[in-house]
């Protein structure tokens, strides 16, 4: 099984590269020759990646979340998977390249630096931890996808405002759809992050008897949760639309990213395992 894991590890960046390439080609070139086949490519990549993650879990007897590069490969998977679900739900197929490039980046870094770790702390073998981390990663993926759609909204908005009717105008879906995709991604991200926080609250006290709720990492996640929660509430209750909503969403993402980086890199936490 170890050989298979190593082979798939080498294969995955190429699969992501091909899938990204097909989505990019289809975005740049009009015509529908590969319009349907690109989704099949994405499905195959996701399937192989899922097998890889399962094999790692079985072989090393822990969920693949115990070091940065395992997290990166899970992040690559969750981003693509979240996009795949969104594409299936909305049938908007022309924005994949903008999401898949992040998956490609994370997977390339992971494939290069990932190591096989057999010996891990007992706390990291817990299934609840696996669900907690994976749902958190899927949540962040949702926010990342929302940010990508926010960026695309801006691009198209600027193009239409300045009467530029080139590639961006021709190939992107409408502003209304981009705004909806942004909002749906935020909602999905928020739900998954909430789930992750809830599992964390159940599992943490049993895993860490000396837990403190003033831990910087918990505070940072709390801030992110609040930012998006307030944003969603404001949009739904005040029925806000358009450019300003997208600006708030992007600011929220930047703040969340900043908070995550600051509290993870600069501040010492009990919530660090590697």
């Amino acid at each position: 099984m170890l050989n298979t894991i190593h082979t798939i590890n080498i294969l995955l960046p190429f699969l992501y590269l091909s899938t990204f390439g097909i989505y990019l080609y289809n975005f740049l070139k009009e015509g529908n020759k590969i319009y349907n086949s690109k989704r099949i490519f994405l499905f195959i990549t996701l399937f192989v990646h899922l097998v890889y993650l399962l094999f790692r879990t079985l072989e090393f007897d822990h969920p693949p979340i115990i070091n940065k590069f395992e997290i990166f490969t899970v992040l690559a998977f969750s981003l693509s998977f979240a996009y795949f679900l969104l594409e299936l739900l909305t049938d908007v197929r022309d924005t994949g390249a903008f999401i898949l490039m992040f998956s490609l980046l994370f997977q390339v870094i992971s494939s290069i630096f990932i190591v096989d770790t057999f010996e891990v702390k007992d706390v990291l073998r817990n299934n609840l931890l696996g669900i907690h981390v994976i749902s958190a990663l899927l949540g962040y993926s949702g926010f990342t996808i929302a940010a990508v759609y926010g960026g695309l909204f801006f691009l198209l908005y600027k193009n239409i405002k300045s009467n530029k009717y080139g590639l961006i105008f021709n190939r992107l879906p409408s502003l209304e759809i981009l705004e909806k995709l942004n909002f749906y991604s935020v909602i999905i991200g928020f739900i998954l992050l909430t789930l992750s926080i809830m599992i964390g609250f159940i599992w943490l006290p049993s895993a860490f008897p000396d837990i403190t709720y003033s831990d910087p990492k918990l505070i940072s996640i709390g801030i992110i949760w609040l930012i998006f929660g307030v944003g969603i509430l404001a949009k739904v209750s005040a029925k806000l639309y358009g450019k300003k909503v997208i600006i708030f969403s992007l600011l929220g993402y930047a703040l969340a990213l900043g908070s995550l980086l600051v509290f993870n890199i600069l501040v010492k936490s009990f919530h660090s395992f590697y």
Binding site: G31, L156, F169, P173, S174, L175, E176, I177
Partner: peptide, 24 residues
């Protein structure tokens, strides 16, 4: 071919822009 693609009158061009702003 793409011989019939895209708007070639001002009114249809306007529709093309409208469809890039609104979904439904």
């Amino acid at each position: 071919t793409l011989i019939s693609h895209g708007a070639v009158t001002v009114s249809f061009a306007a529709i093309q822009v409208i469809e890039k702003i609104f979904a439904n």
